[in-house]
């Protein structure tokens, strides 16, 4: 191979290398820019989740009496008149086992899930007041807070300390400790 050709080849290779490096560099540094900025209204429409400190809890309130009324016609068919559960409807007892309300670590989960996913055949239709009422009813009924006049709102629900909280231990394989999660 002549020196001229060799030089040409080296030149070509180095241009090719710098081009490909350039492309890699660009992809590593620059943004793709796909998607649109989320409008706050759009976030608010979907951001229904309740954090364990109670943030996300909406306005409104409900008491045990309201909850009992809602429970009777929205929940009892599957969960049973006495919260005993109707297995053929897919619902286990709320007094014992894995669905035992006394065992929940946070009341926020209860509000979040009822408002999000219940009733099974028409999820997401309970009002905030009705959901507060149901949480009050369930906590009273299961003896977590024995108070027939219990009324819950964002502030009072966030203040509830569930009695079983300290019994939750964190699987080390999750790479978190209990302290990380406080």
């Amino acid at each position: 191979m002549s020196a001229h050709k060799t030089l040409k080849l080296i030149g070509f290779v180095s241009i090719a290398i710098s081009l490909s490096f350039g492309a890699l560099f660009a992809s590593a540094q620059e943004k793709f820019g796909f998607g649109k900025p989320a409008h706050p209204d759009e976030i608010a429409r979907y951001n229904s989740d309740i954090h364990t400190d109670g943030s996300g809890l909406p306005d409104g309130s409900g008491d045990v009496a309201l909850g009992a009324e809602i429970y009777e016609y929205q929940c009892a068919l599957c969960h049973g008149e006495e919260l005993e559960g109707v297995p053929e409807m897919g619902a286990n007892s709320l007094h014992e086992g894995r669905r035992d309300i006394k065992k929940l670590p946070y009341a926020s989960s209860l509000f979040d899930f009822i408002r999000r996913a219940m009733p099974l055949t028409d999820p997401g239709t309970l009002s905030n007041d009705e959901t507060y009422g149901l949480v009050a009813f369930l906590l009273n009924e299961t003896g977590v807070i024995k108070d027939d006049n219990l009324t819950l709102d964002a502030k009072s629900l966030a203040a509830i300390k569930m009695p079983n909280r300290q019994n939750f231990i964190i699987d080390p394989a999750s790479r978190f400790t209990a302290e990380d999660l406080q």
Partner: peptide, 27 residues
């Protein structure tokens, strides 16, 4: 922080014989 969602605190938490409940057992 984790949300401790319904599934994380009911079916997918693992009760142990000593009344403890193992949470976040992902693997």
């Amino acid at each position: 922080k984790p949300w401790w969602t319904h599934h994380e605190v009911t079916e997918y938490a693992d009760p142990r014989p000593d009344d403890k409940i193992r949470a976040f057992s992902f693997i």
